[in-house]
Design a protein around this nucleic acid. Structure first.
Lengths: 247, 247
DNA sequence: TACTATTGTGTAATAATGACACAATAGGAT
DNA sequence: ATCCTATTGTGTCATTATTACACAATAGTA
């Protein structure tokens, strides 16, 4: 295994959020033969930007390209670099012992959060350290490697804040969705109940969703209207941000 | 010059904002014998976090400790690493040519913005590359090294956004200040005029400033009330953020 | 004492928000 | 068919926040 084409000391970690069954999920890797989980991550090639490196991580794990990503924090605590899990992987013959030299370095990790439509990820792929790649509920996290729990917490805080400045639905929901589904997403992320009618009014006032004139049938109650995002207006709003009042 | 105690590939750059004469200023360094300016920056020692490294940069340039700092972005474009300015400094005998090896590396730079009370910075100190350290108006930036102009722009955008989520006055204004002064600060950062009376109402409703019962005398008009921040409430609001409405 | 410049204070019209009630309807039960 | 259930679509009213103003107060100066 050759690490010489990577930028030293720097890594990238991705917190991939998905929304399923009214829960926020994170894509996680289970280390081979260990009861320890990790975030999808990687290193930066010498001629790559970190964004491109994160794109590659996302592509490799989810199979999808062009996933929405947002750099949110860099983790630089010198104590965050530990190698006990690598040493265990080596003693389990998962890794060759000559990789230890690379991992013994201190790493500063650039955190990205990514938003992806849950159902689009058909086959999450583990990497060379892991035996499983799967969705885990944000509120049922298993034991995590290094500071990955802190990274997830911070990603979530940032996602929460970002929700007040820009829309996120287009990345987390399928192309067509109903108002109750959109509301469930917001309630899940914000962790609070929102009045149905006030939510609708607010969302519609943003002018970023369009009534498709379809209805979502199949439930034994009034069928909700199916909406889709107005991509033009959505991206316009995303770029400008909400100018939520101060003055 | 020995760089062996620094983390490879990673640097720190600080955008230090100050407020003076109704203008937002940035602390800049002028490279020795060159007509080129740079942000205060540095490297991370092997046992330091980036935050501590930024603290040191801020201390070394301003003489002040405990300056408010906020990590805002990491700059990772592989094209951002250039050495032409270093080579010029070497050919001008400012630097020894054996430093070139270190600077030839690609650097990923962690951007911090810092807020400081302008008048507290008595004697800005240049570093080993520079002959001057001084305040420069944000809208009159000289020619800057590398991608430092982009770094400043992004810092400013972030400061702008942050203003909608948390108060900033305590870091940029002197301990005692008047309502018109606070308003001028907001108008400068947001680059828009705010109605005097509405501004006052909004600020007072946050409950983070206290009437000192003093007046600022000396001008031939009605003397404005002198306020100070209620540090307890200020930091409480800072921590929680404004929960500016969405729902 | 009057004048100037600017500050402190108040108020009315408009818009946004929060807290509700009721009609509409898809699917299933009778 | 008709009724029932669960849930959605729509509307309304009281309250609060915002916008756009007018006028009185006052420190210094003429």
């Amino acid at each position: 295994m050759d690490f010489s084409d990577y930028v030293p000391s720097v890594s990238v970690d991705c917190v991939v959020f998905g929304f399923h069954q009214n829960q926020l999920k994170v894509l996680m890797l289970k280390l081979k033969h260990l009861n320890l989980w990790a975030l999808p991550g990687g290193f930066i090639e010498n001629n790559q930007s970190a964004t491109i490196a994160a794109d590659k991580v996302l592509k490799d794990r989810t199979g999808l390209e062009g996933i929405y990503q947002q750099q949110f924090h860099v983790f630089t605590d010198p104590e965050r670099s530990q190698t006990s899990h690598i040493e265990q992987l080596i003693s389990n013959d998962v890794l060759d012992k000559d990789v230890l030299g690379w991992f013994k370095n201190r790493f500063i990790s650039i955190g990205y959060y990514a938003l992806v439509e849950y159902s689009k990820v058909n086959k999450p792929e583990p990497d060379f350290l892991s035996e499983k790649c799967q969705w885990v509920s944000l509120d049922e996290l298993p034991e995590l490697m290094l500071d990955h729990e802190e990274i997830i917490k911070r990603a979530y805080v940032r996602l929460n804040q970002d929700l007040y400045q820009k829309p996120v639905g287009i990345n987390l929901l399928p192309e067509k969705f109903t108002m109750p589904e959109l509301q469930a997403l917001y309630e899940t992320i914000l962790q609070k109940k929102i009045d149905r009618r006030n939510f609708r009014r607010k969302i519609l006032s943003l002018n970023i969703i369009i009534d498709t004139k379809e209805k979502r049938m199949g439930s034994n109650n009034r069928a909700p209207i199916v909406y889709k995002f107005d991509k033009t207006k959505y991206h316009q709003v995303l770029k400008e941000g909400y100018h939520i009042n101060l003055f």
